[in-house]
Every structure is written in C-alpha cells, then in structure tokens.
Design a protein around this nucleic acid. Structure first.
Lengths: 141, 141
DNA sequence: TATGGACCCTGTAGCAACTACAGGGTCAAG
DNA sequence: CTTGACCCTGTAGTTGCTACAGGGTCCATA
C-alpha cells in the first residue's frame, strides 16, 4: 500500500508514457515531485489524481492549454464554474465543427472510391478528381 | 498570358503560402523550377498543375506521404489504379474512424455541459467528470 | 538617377504534443 | 558482483507548416 510511486508505476497507473510525464513536468503542467536519495521522482496521491485529470481531459480532446486552464479553475473551489463551462462549450463547438468537416470530406472520398473503375491509372477517376480541371483549348497553335 | 509564374503568383493561383511552396520543394514534393537571372523561381504550367493536385489532396486530408504516393502513381499511366484506390480507401477508413471517435467525444462533452449546474467550482459536474473517481475509504486512521 | 515598396532569396527557429534516443546512474535479485 | 530493469538528463525527431532575420531584385515614380 505504498502511497509513493516511481515514475514507471505512475505511468502504468494512468496509462501515460514515462517520457510524457517528464514532459508534463517540464512544461509546468504536473508539479515536480520530491526525489528519493537516488534522485528518482517520488510521486504521491495528489500527483496521481492530477495526472489522471490531465489524461482524462486529453482523452476528451482538450488542448494542453485548455487542460492548464481547467486545472487552475478546479483549484479555485469557491469561484463560480462559468469559466469551466465556457471551456467545455468552446471545445464542444470545435469538436462539432471538426465532425462536420470530416463528414463532408468523407462524402467526397466515398464518391471518389465509388467511381473508381479499377482500370489503368490513365482512366482513374480518383486521380482525375484530384487533378486540376482540364483547360478548354484557348486557340489553335 | 505569361505561362511563367513567380512564386507569389503561383501561391495566389493555388491558395498556398509562399513558404509552403518552398517547403514542398525542400521535401521533394514539388520539383524545383528553373530560376530567372535574378535567381527567382520561375514556375511553368506543369508546376501549377502539380501544386493544384497537391493542394486538392491535402484539402481532402491526405497526408504528405499519401500525396507523394498518389503523385507517383498518377505518373504511371499504364499501371492499374488499384494502388490509388487502396490509398483512398485507407484514408477513407481513417476519416470514418476519426468521425466515430469525435462523435463519442461529442456525446461526453454534451453530457458534461448539460449537467453543469452553474454553481461554484466545488460542485461543478464538469470538473467532477474529469476528476479521478473518489476512493471509498479503506480504513480509519 | 535615386528611392521606395513590393517582391524574392536563404537559413533557421518555432508551433503542438509528444516520442525516441544516447549515455549514463540506481537498485534489487541471484 | 553482475545482470537487468528501472531511473536520470539532455537533445533531436515527428507532421505540416509558419515566421522571422537579414539580405537581394525589380519596377515605377519623383
């Protein structure tokens, strides 16, 4: 029941690569822990909670800057949570826009793939769809 | 009716930043053009077509490596277009997976935002949703 | 003819968010 | 006392650009 974790254990507990944890420390997202006599990082439960929060936020697609803001807000328990709501709403809007973009793209790709006649490249509809429009001759040479 | 374009003109014609064109040249995606006496890049129609193809492919979300493969294939007009089809299908599958991921994410975010009671941060459902599960006490100390 | 501004050149560094080394130190088991 | 798993720092790579800095070129206008 040791409440102190080495970096590898913390990584396993939060499904985070060791390098990523060190990276989060370097950019100031996760507080630097105390060190053992052998200079190993020694993480406690607070670090574990913090990193779990970060990972969960990242999994939901929040940027590191958004995560940073959420962490700050999460610590100010007395303040109203409007700012939190705002970050989540903005992110939701981004996600919705991305979905719309990808859906449009999917339709174009589907059309392309459907039209592929499986012949030679010279007749390939996919290549054609990607190529610039053929110019109608301007004047005979 | 000059068929020779300066890099800025090519950029305007293809909606591409000048730096991006030079970048494509550096990574070998767009052939280096001839130079004028003043060492300016002088692009011809082939470059214009090529860059248009690249841009269109990029707009459809193909990676630069995929674009590179498509360009190679587009030049081998005699070969069957199966490889082209394959690239497009793989990309389509990627896009579909991304859409599914984002849709799942959207639902989670919607739930979070819907549950926000607009109270204090300490009661915020969004923060709660991001936080690691509270542990049921193990034993009294 | 000078000069101003728009354009072009090279080379390098920065962005997000990691990931992957290289070249070492630490620690517990056998 | 050695082996192997783990840890350390520091730096460079990834993708696809973008943004300078510090110059050179070109052309029209005064």
């Amino acid at each position: 029941m040791s409440d102190i974790l080495a970096i590898g254990e913390l990584g396993r507990a939060t499904d985070t690569k060791v390098e990523t944890i060190r990276y989060y420390e370097r950019i100031g997202l996760l507080a630097a822990p105390l060190r053992t006599s052998g200079n190993y990082r020694a993480y406690d439960r607070a670090h574990l909670n913090r990193l779990s929060f970060i990972r969960r936020s990242r999994d939901l697609g929040f940027s590191l800057e958004q995560v940073r803001a959420l962490l700050d807000l999460a610590d100010q328990k007395d303040r109203p949570c409007e700012a939190v709501d705002e970050i989540a709403r903005v992110h939701l809007a981004e996600v919705e826009r991305k979905i719309a973009d990808l859906a449009a793209l999917r339709e174009e790709l589907r059309d392309m793939v459907r039209q592929c006649g499986h012949g030679a490249v010279r007749d390939c509809r996919i290549i054609e769809a990607l190529s610039p429009p053929v110019e109608t001759a301007t004047s005979p040479d």
